[in-house]
Design a protein around this nucleic acid. Structure first.
Lengths: 239, 239
DNA sequence: GCATATTTGTCCGTATGTATA
DNA sequence: CTATACATACGGACAAATATG
């Protein structure tokens, strides 16, 4: 539906690695395998909303479009299923995950627990720098009315908050959760209604953290999350 | 090395589902695919320590031992790589993950953040029941000197603590983390040194939670985690 | 309700590149 | 440096389940 997009011009020969710009998070320092690159491409498309929730991933069609074999494609599926972006219905196929209100509430439960805990402790300067950069990116994107990019900046901000927790594993897990969150964002018809009000809230939270008022920052973040959850849930229910 | 163990007697024909008792956490209500069951079997073996850290998973050998094709096996690999139990070294193969001191510290950073936050709030009765059952199981296993099972009970206890957070996604993520933790347990030569001292600590934490002293319970849990981390890290460094 | 077509699930064979003895 | 072993990736085959007429 979203047109055809080859992975790299499918070089007929096997075991070829094209460019592979994105690279996700890559296990260690490996140049990604084909399945990884396929997963990266599909993840990007899902997150951007080019592949809407519920759309089926026909194996036949995708192998043709991406220029990879069915086996490789299925390996990529397993990666994205593990990240909960895809869901497999046995003998029926894999689909872009469709979130309901319960999912949204669950995601925000995780965020409240993890992010608030991470923010409630003295923040490292590096983390604050990244948060500030995210706030700037968000404002810039809002001026351009690029609401997808506002969402990207928002995610970047909260990834930075998570990083305050000081655990690479937590970062990785939360990054996957934020990808799922993009699926939730798509449930809200007009993105600016969702993102615009929360732009200054991030700035406020950053301000409090910079003034070392971590308790207050954490508290503000909690109400932020409560309200964001309410906006999305109401959009789902009212749909 | 650990002998051969067929998955189900490899029925020659394709698309057969054997028994599949374990079932992990299953996406929804699907009867697991072959790759899922293979992943379940391998995960169990890794967690039990039958497949030690660093051992290579030869595709050729494993396909023969499990009676599945290379494609299916590689799908299972992707699942376990996603759970960080296996690691892929490009063009060399996949290996059981080998944890170092940094990994152990990282795991305990996550645990401190998540578990302490989950425990610091009013606990649901159901959660306490599960925690109590875990304590009982731990004591019983200790009487039998079954230290692996003591470890299982310990994990069960802390899974129950995590469940207090009230998020299915968090549970899932932490379950994977605890599987990784079993890898860390294996770094300590004699398990009873690791597990025995922490048996009464769980009971103490449970007691505090049952008396609704959540702040104190969370605090106790934190020192518990600090000490457990120290024990494992010292075992790694002294190795 | 039944026959048929399509798609998934799984296996096998093979070619190629990479690492290692 | 060559040879060997193995991982990577492709393509084709068939059974089984689901969708379709």
């Amino acid at each position: 539906m979203t047109g055809s997009a080859s992975l790299e011009g499918h070089p007929a020969g096997a075991t070829r690695s094209g460019l592979g710009v994105v690279g996700g998070q890559g296990e260690l320092l490996d140049r990604p395998t084909t399945a990884q690159r396929v997963a990266d491409v599909l993840r990007e498309r899902i997150v951007r909303g080019e592949l809407r929730s519920g759309t089926q991933f026909g194996e036949q069609q995708l192998t043709a479009a991406l220029g990879v074999s069915r086996n490789t494609l299925r390996e990529a599926f397993q990666i994205l299923i593990g990240e909960r972006l895809l869901i497999r219905e046995p003998h029926r196929g894999v689909f872009v995950r469709r979130l309901d209100a319960t999912d949204v509430r669950d995601i925000y439960n995780v965020r409240r627990l993890v992010e608030c805990a991470a923010l409630a402790r003295p923040a490292e300067p590096r983390g604050l720098v990244e948060m500030r950069a995210a706030v700037r990116q968000g404002r810039s994107a809002a001026r351009r009315h690029d609401w997808y990019d506002v969402g990207t900046a928002d995610v970047r901000f909260h990834v930075a908050v998570t990083a305050l927790g000081g655990s690479g594993r937590l970062d990785r897990v939360m990054r996957a959760l934020f990808a799922e969150l993009r699926l939730a964002f798509q449930l809200v018809p007009d993105s600016h209604v969702l993102h615009k009000p929360f732009l200054p809230r991030n700035a406020e939270i950053l301000d409090l953290a910079e003034h070392c008022d971590y308790a207050q920052a954490s508290e503000r973040l909690r109400t932020y999350l409560d309200e964001a959850e309410a906006v999305i849930v109401s959009a789902v229910d009212g749909d």
